[in-house]
Structure formats: C-alpha cells, structure tokens
Design a binder for these strands. Structure first.
Lengths: 209, 209
DNA sequence: CCTCTTGTTGTACGATCGTTCAACAAGACA
DNA sequence: TGTCTTGTTGAACGATCGTACAACAAGAGG
C-alpha cells in the first residue's frame, strides 16, 4: 500500500501570488510584453492556466502588481542620513549588478512601453517617479545649502533621473557598448560637473538592494 | 450610361509602402506594439487586409522598415560645418515639436521595447546609434581641441545621448512633468556644466527636420 | 477595344490570445 | 476518519492574431 501520489502542492494565496509575479517578471525579461502571456507565465511558474485569473483580477492587474513590486524600493533605497550619501546610494543601487542586467532592464522597458496603454500603470508610474524626483531634488537642495552656491534642483534632479533611465535604455538596447562601471562613472561625472563631488562618501549598510 | 464606379485606386509600390509605413507609425503612436496589428494598420491606411503581406515580407519586416525611416535623419541632421553648430542642431531637432510629442515618442518607445525580440531591428539600432554617437564624440573632440582642455568625448557623448533619450522617455511616460523648453535647456545646461557653451551659436538652414 | 501586368481585395486557415467555470483534491480541523 | 474550505486544474469559449492564396480589377500599352 504505497502512499497516494500528490498531484500538486497547495500554497498560501500570498505566496503563490509572489511566485506568479516573479514568473511574470521572468517572462518580461525574456521576451518583452509579447511573452507576457497567461500560457507562458503559468508554464514559467509551473502552474496550470487558470491560476492567474484566480489570484489576480486580470492579466493587466498582474502587470500593475509587478510594476508595484519593481518600484517598491525606489524611494526606500534613499534611506541615508546624509544628502551626499543619498545621491550615492541611488547611483550605486541603480547600477548594481542585480538591477543593471539585460533581463531586468528588458522587463522595465517592456512595462514603460505599456504605461501609455494602461491607466492604472500610468498612475502608479506618476506616483512613484514623483516621489523619486522630489527626494533627489531635496537632497540636491541640502547640498546646495551646505555649500553656499545655488542649484536648480528641479532641473538637475530631472537630468539625473533622465541620465540613469537613458543609460538603462542604451544598455538594454546595446549591452556591448559600455559597462556597468562606465554607467556609474557617467552619473558621478555629471554631478561633479555641477560641483557635487561624491568621492569618498560612504553609505550606511542595509541599502544594498 | 454613367461612368463605372472605381472600387479602389492603384498606386505605385513605393508610394503604397510609404503609406503603410506612415499608418504603422500612427498605430504605434496610438497604442504601442499591441496596436501594431495587420488589421489596424490596414484600417489606418484605408486598404484591405492582404496588402501588408503583399508589399512587405512580413509584419516584422514592416516594423524594421519603419524604424529605418524614423532613424534615417539621425545623422543627416548633424550636417553643420561648425562642431558647436552640430551639437546645437542635435539638441534643436531632438526637441523640435515635430519630434518631441507624445505620439512620436510612444512609437519610438514601442520599437525600443521590441529591439530585444527582433535581431534585424537590433542590428539596425546598433548601426544607427553607433554612427550617431561617433559623430557627437567627434564634435566634442573638435571643441576640446579648439579650447585646449581635455574632454572624455566617449563618455560625454554617451551622457548626451542618454540624457536626450532619457528625457524622451520621461516625457513619454509623464508629459505633464516638464515642457519641451525645459528638456532643451537641460541639455544645454549639461554641456555648459562641462564647459561647452552653445549660447549664440547659429545653425545653418535646411536642417529643421 | 483588347490584352496583359500587377496592385488590390477578401475569405479562409490554424495558432494563440484572455477569460470563464465546473470539477477536483490538498490539507487543516474537528 | 470524516468534513469542509479553498487552492488548483484543465477543458471550453469566442475573439483576434499573421499569413496564404485565389479571384478581381485598375490602368497602361498596343
């Protein structure tokens, strides 16, 4: 009398949702939005076809949840006491190997391209990037105040964000063109050109995401 | 005896292809890659369903032709005698109203997101952006030589390209955040921070695309 | 007016899409 | 062990996808 075979293993709703989110990100990284398919996501997660619509309202809802997950630590990563450390932390995390790789960048690019088609996605993006830019501008204002020279923090914050995202884009489209270290140095050079030197600044532990 | 009604009007292959290319760009601008559909393209061009596969090898082939069309003037726009004028020309054309609008930017973003899925598209992108970056770096070298101070032209060219594309991206995702004039000024500010002042530089006519 | 080239049409096809839903069973609990 | 909740399965549906292809006709040339 052998033990009955187990066809599948039940998991908590939250845990299964996390697995489906991870599987969706993997699909986006492999083949962009055209690979973001119920079939492929479920195959990636090793579950049957009906499970996505059981755990999520729709495929679009899953995509929004995925973007929420990906942007969750965008602001948290700035949790540094010193303004200079905050800026350096952004640069470091933006070009950490865990973020700055083709698979992850393709997922980001695929979602960016969908923002125009999905109002919920658009609203989420606006919210996240608004906080993100505000925090950078505040850090720049702090530095300007301490150094005693004026900075157009809104404009410079926009340039920093655009440079980072632009480098992400270029690397995603042509990863042989330059390296992770090049991209990081470009950001530091930009800030240095505006009089902000981050050389020797140390960041507190726990922000190495 | 009335004249027989004309069901459709024949056009030359080249002319019809241009119309289909234009219709494809319109679709990309309206709904991204998911709106880039045989049905919608043909409806946009007011032709029947079979015409795309008659004039193009496949839908992918049309997409490559579209990107070739969109990037055709990327290098030509630098046709200026003075290095400073070349840089200014790039900034001006990148943020001209005919380029820097949501519809056009969405088309670009949609294609960028497809580069990873299409080898022909990827090869075309690499080729175009390589020439583009090389030309910018050469202009920067010219300026550095004339001013007598060193410039890491490869790095700075990459920053300029990334900043422009990054601003395109940000504007596409959140067009209320800043204006066309802001974006243009950001580029000029970046170059100025590196010691390159384009104030008062005039560009020759005929490059206003 | 006739002929011929070829641009154009529209149907048909198989594949794949997202979603629904009845049925099943894993596993906690009494 | 028996009951019940609910996570999970997999078939079924209509819609839409890209492509192929036979039939049609616009319009130039004779």
């Amino acid at each position: 009398m052998s033990k009955r075979t187990i066809a599948y293993r039940r998991k908590t709703a939250e845990q299964r949702q996390q697995e489906l989110i991870a599987a969706g990100i993997t699909c986006l990284g492999k083949g962009g939005i055209s690979a973001f398919t119920i079939d492929r996501i479920c195959r990636e997660a090793n579950v049957s076809r009906g499970l996505v619509n059981h755990h999520f309202k729709s495929k679009e809802d899953l995509l929004v949840r995925i973007y929420a997950e990906m942007t969750a630590h965008l602001v948290d990563d700035m949790a540094q006491s010193d303004a200079r450390a905050q800026l350096l932390s952004i640069v470091e995390t933006s070009f950490a190997a865990s973020s700055f790789n083709t698979s992850n960048l393709r997922a980001w690019l695929a979602i960016w391209a969908e923002v125009g088609n999905n109002e919920a996605l658009s609203a989420l993006h606006r919210s996240r990037y608004h906080s993100y830019t505000i925090r950078i501008a505040a850090a720049l204002d702090d530095i300007a105040a301490s150094k005693g020279f004026p900075i157009n923090s809104t404009s410079l914050a926009r340039q920093v964000v655009a440079l980072i995202d632009g480098l992400w884009l270029e690397y995603c489209l042509h990863s042989e063109g330059f390296s992770l270290a090049d991209a990081k140095q470009d950001c530091l050079d930009l800030l240095l050109a505006y009089g902000i030197d981050l050389t020797g600044v140390s960041i507190a532990a726990g922000a190495d995401r």
